[in-house]
């Protein structure tokens, strides 16, 4: 099992009020799964994704990633696991405007201290896979939304992560580019990538093999395709 959560709960204090974003979530995700988490705005989808991505911590419960109990790890250890094993795709792409397409994709490898030649090889490989070779020297502001998201996906998969986490990856795209991005993610899954995707759109969620329905911080249903 790649991911397992046991009674995972997340609470926030906002202006002295306690809000329970996630309430006793129990999840199991195997390597190679393509999982969607669907729900309306404010149901806790992004909070769950952030915890699975070790960007945020649980309030209680357990999160086991690749047989490692993560709740007791310190920030440095969590950052290391994240760096080595996970790739992120965001709704607003979150590319760095001062870096070109090539440089944006290359960045995770720099942080993992890959040598220049190795980086070059992998980046060109990924750019080919994501059909970005012709945009190598472009800057994000010169690309369409769909192209930017492809760059974000390329960056997410450059270090061959065990897990890809996508938070509303098509939220800022029109239907044509949204379909393009989802097909790319599906192809990646077919090649063995484990994907957890969060969305509020059912037609996007349908690309996954397993769909969790989240409402008010609880998993209310699970659909297997």
């Amino acid at each position: 099992m790649l991911i397992e959560t046991i009674n995972l709960t997340k609470k926030y204090i906002v202006n002295e009020f306690e809000i329970t974003a996630l309430n006793n979530i129990n999840l199991s995700i195997k390597t190679g799964d393509f999982v969607s988490i669907i729900g309306p705005s404010g149901c806790g989808k992004s909070s769950l994704l952030n915890i699975l991505g070790m960007i945020d911590r649980t309030s209680s419960g357990n999160y086991i990633f690749d047989d490692i109990e993560t709740t007791s790890l310190n920030e440095k250890q969590r950052a290391n696991i994240r760096k080595m094993n996970m790739g992120f795709v965001f709704q607003s792409f979150n590319l760095i405007d001062e870096l070109s397409v090539y440089e944006n994709i290359e960045l995770p490898l720099i942080y993992q201290k890959f040598k220049e030649k190795q980086r070059e090889e992998r980046v060109f490989q990924i750019m080919e896979k994501t059909q970005l070779l012709s945009k190598k020297d472009f800057f994000p502001q010169q690309l369409s939304g769909g192209q930017q998201q492809r760059v974000a996906i390329a960056r997410a998969i450059i270090s061959d992560p065990k897990l890809i986490l996508a938070d509303e990856p098509t939220g800022n795209l029109d239907s044509f580019h949204a379909k393009e991005v989802m097909e790319l993610l599906s192809r990646l899954n077919e090649n063995g990538a484990t994907i957890v995707l969060v969305t509020h759109a059912s037609h996007i969620a349908d690309f996954a093999h397993r769909i969790y329905n989240l409402f008010d911080g609880k998993i209310i249903s699970e659909k297997i395709k």
Binding site: K76, N94, P108, R155
Partner: peptide, 11 residues
């Protein structure tokens, strides 16, 4: 920019 870098692996 800082947030993204930290997410993708910068310490």
């Amino acid at each position: 920019e800082i947030g993204i870098k930290k997410v993708i692996g910068a310490n």
